[in-house]
Amino acid sequence: MLMRTLNSLAAGLIALVLAAPILVVAGVSVNEKKSLTFPPQGFSLAWYAEVFTDPGWRGALITSLVVATLSAALAVLIAFPLAWFLWRWRAPWARAFEVLGMTPFILPPVITALGFLSFWAAVGEYGSPWTVVVSHAVFFVTLPLVTLSLGFGAVDRSYVEAAATMGADDRTVLRTVVMPLVRPYVISGFAFAFVLSLNEYIVAYMVVGFTLETLPIKIFNALRYGYTPTMAAVTVLFVTLTAVVFGLIAWFGDLPRLLGAWAKND
């Protein structure tokens, strides 16, 4: 009994500490005056409005959303054929590409960022807006690769055999049998890459930092001129968006399984 109370107390404390910075920022974001005080003085949603009306913040928000959407889509386009190939054929050599796809995510991000910086500078594209899309796609390809490997692994091969026996070729099997089964994994892979690209700073900064302003870059640049409630509002919007995306993944997919726990009926 005592143990249980202590356990809940510890879990509650951890939840509180994890939430505390976000809660304080949320409080600061509704200040009536342009000051960072907590508890907030007065109540105003003007700072949230500013995120959408101020051209600088709105531009950064749109840039971030476009970059995240395109790079997550490209990451899935790279990961899908690779994961399918590894599942369909016996090709141990192709595992090398899987390892390659995992590496940027494990190494400290500054390394990948520096690699991209030297590469884009060498090919004369340093600063071109599209380079950040390719860079993010390769940087985050790990996520759809992991979810899709799990997804293909979960496909019951007897379905595939049944379809093949009835005369379906690879393409038909992929379209009619495999695709519907792995769709949730495609979506969650996209969503993971999307959220991380939205929040990514160092790669974007090194690649297009002087020509394009994504939201994290904008926040960091703005920090140098002092803290404003607008940043707090942006932060709250970002946290909410992130939580909504993961909430949707959990709603439509099997989150514990995606994160490596075996499903109950395995």
Binding site: A15, V28, L36, N199
Partner: peptide, 26 residues
């Protein structure tokens, strides 16, 4: 979901949130 949301937060945002939490005014 809660942990994943915090994990994917930008370092910029974590840094900003903590310096606000530890600031004098807020």
């Amino acid at each position: 979901v809660f942990l994943l949301s915090i994990l994917s937060l930008s370092e910029v945002i974590i840094g900003f949130a903590w310096s606000t939490l530890l600031s004098r005014t807020a």
